[in-house]
């Protein structure tokens, strides 16, 4: 007997096995000719600069905090959504009051501007007369990994 969670488990297992398997199988087919440029970390075509572990904007944290509260709200609404029809109008109102209480919080956040995203002020570029330095020529030397 396969329960619904059993099916989910098979999905998880497939997902975990599939990725290493594909990477391993691809190793036999793909040509491997690494150069210095190819081995660089891909950063949308730009040359990577500095550490990727930078200090994040505090706004992400506030948004995640608000998300967590509404996450719990949604979780609590699942059992209500399954059963409220058995109780008629009373069951419906219980959920509506619950939602209104949290809607109040949402309105508060909105009014206080916690959902606004502070944009950094753009700094206009300062042009200097000096010509830019010559770019380094790309070297295509073969590397061994």
């Amino acid at each position: 007997m396969l329960t619904e969670f059993g099916k989910i488990f098979i999905f998880i297992l497939l997902a975990v096995v599939f990725v290493p398997l594909i990477v391993y199988v691809a190793k036999f087919i793909r040509p491997a000719r690494p150069t210095k440029e190819k081995l660089k970390i891909y950063e949308c075509g730009e040359n990577p600069e500095g550490s990727p572990w930078i200090k994040f904007n505090i706004r992400f944290y506030v948004i995640a905090l608000i998300f967590l509260i509404f996450d719990v709200e949604v979780v609590l609404l699942f059992p209500w959504a399954l059963t409220y029809q058995d109780f008629g109008f009373y069951g419906f109102m219980v959920g509506i009051i619950f939602l209104l209480i949290l809607g109040l919080g949402m309105a508060y956040e909105w009014r206080k501007g916690d959902l606004e995203w502070e944009r950094p002020k753009p700094i206009p570029p300062i042009l200097d007369d000096e010509p830019p330095a010559e770019n380094e020529e790309l070297k295509e030397e073969s590397l061994t990994i």
Partner: peptide, 26 residues
């Protein structure tokens, strides 16, 4: 869900209040 709407209905609404307090406080 059945328990939340019968025996623990007050708790369910209080949970909403608790979440509201946590939201505003955070």
């Amino acid at each position: 869900g059945k328990l939340l709407l019968t025996e623990y209905v007050l708790i369910f609404e209080l949970l909403g209040m608790l979440l509201l307090v946590a939201l505003i406080g955070a």
